[in-house]
Amino acid sequence: MANTLSVGDPIIEVRDVTYRYAGSRVNVLDQVSLTINRGDFVALIGQNGAGKTTLAKTFNGLLQPSTGDLLVDSKNTRSAGLAQLARVVGYVYQNPDHQIFAKSVREEVAFGPRNLGMSTAEVNAAVEHALDLVEMAHEADSYPFVLGRGQRQKLAVASVIAMGSPVMVVDEPTTGLDLRGALNIMNLLRRWNASGRTIIVITHDMDIVAEYASRSIVMTKGKVVADGDTRGILTNEAILTEAHLALPRITKIAQLIDARHKFPNDILTVQEFRAVLNERLLAKRRT
């Protein structure tokens, strides 16, 4: 379905989408319009209740907009079937225990591809590929529930990777993980993105956004209040204040130094900070 597209082509188009839950009078999504392109690494950010997860659930038809339309790979989600949408948009839940049920890691990963009607050979190939990518091939026959939280999270990602969807939505991928576990997952998503896949991450972790996402979409009260280059958004204090978000810690440190020493105030990562610092030290040594 999505094989004809190339990086940069629109893969999800949201047109004036409004959503309200049954029995509620509040618009959880309010006239949202945006386009996500193939190959994007997008962060959906905003405080709790901003509508991030609701928006993401409309991408694969788990929720249908109350008004407006949503096109996924040029197909309207209202008319596209569940399997058709799952082929394009995979969704990894915040808590891996909401989806793990099989007796082995291999069977768990094979569940999605089987539902998509792949042949046995295709399922086996998809499972091998996904487990290799998440570095869990050695755990293929393990019982999923004996794995640690980080491993279970990787298994949840692998089970969506195996479906081959060109878009992957990942809801709070680093919640409950230590730093190493969080970086493992994020680096895994970066590798998957490097192969031309679109990644949409829902997160509150601004350091993760700064480090990994090339584009950020900021939501407040069901509306998109900013959408663009991550550097431009994360260094714009007005936008972050409106969305009740904090600057990444390293950006904050850089901006504090900036006031006295003219340090760049749009630094997003520790690597960038270190590079500027090294440059300054070298310059000082030369003088």
Binding site: K57, N60, L62, L82, A83, A86, R87, G90, Y91, Y93, H98, Q99, F111, G112, N115, L116, S159, V160, M163
Partner: peptide, 10 residues
Amino acid sequence: AEAQRARALD
């Protein structure tokens, strides 16, 4: 049920 539907389970 939603998580499994997202993996194409009908």
